[in-house]
Design a protein around this nucleic acid. Sequence first.
DNA 1: GTAATCAGTAACCTTTAGGTAATCAAGAAA
DNA 2: TTTCTTGATTACCTAAAGGTTACTGATTAC
Lengths: 123, 123
Amino acid sequence: MKKKVHTECLSALLPVRDTLDIIGGKWRILILISIWEGNRHFREIERSIPKLSTKVLAKELKDMELNKLITRTVVNGFPVRTEYAPTEYSKTLQKLIRELQNWGLKHRQEVFGKVTEIHRRCC
Amino acid sequence: MKKKVHTECLSALLPVRDTLDIIGGKWRILILISIWEGNRHFREIERSIPKLSTKVLAKELKDMELNKLITRTVVNGFPVRTEYAPTEYSKTLQKLIRELQNWGLKHRQEVFGKVTEIHRRCC
DNA sequence: GTAATCAGTAACCTTTAGGTAATCAAGAAA
DNA sequence: TTTCTTGATTACCTAAAGGTTACTGATTAC
């Protein structure tokens, strides 16, 4: 007498992986929010996020451009400027991020029994 | 003339990190779904997820228990059995996972212009 | 007697993510 | 002239995540 249990709707989870790959890094959401908030230039973004290194930022910006979350425009001129801007499309992530935040907030309550004061609202 | 741009609502993002730490691993959502689907024993879960190793499964199950997503009950007996079961609380993640899935699905359309057939629905 | 089952654990190795520091060329400010 | 700023790139290193293989002890099936 065998139990028949299946998990072969595994492929349906690929989109979940896709999403997590895009927002899952240590910095990606931070960078996205920085750009949403109005930071447009490389150094500006870099300075807005403490401890973020140029190398990681450069890499993440490339990925985010590929994923159509931001646009990159080189403005020829004096010291050569590059402009990053959020796409309209990127804003479809906002709802998701808010829900990740809400769940995380409730989870602290569930696991620790209370909310740490640091966590409030934003964005 | 300086632009004033702030990103110091950074601490509000900690709950987002919390959530991603819990569902963000390579296997965690897979394991959770396997248990939701009815797999209850260690080997059962292990077999239901191809390529998942015992070491990783053992570690993830511990984490998930700490996070109150599952319960672990040892049933004394013949070859010693352990039962894992999903908590009611774990189900609060289902909505979130579905949204990660939906966004990922739409994202493929946005980036590649079409949906790959593999991706449908589940859970 | 041998093999397989259960739920793991331990030692070790590889891969990936992320961090550090130096460097690039061109112009602008000191 | 020297230094600073721009947007990066490169080489190198560390830490964490994940994978591989072997093994445990008790029991049951062959």
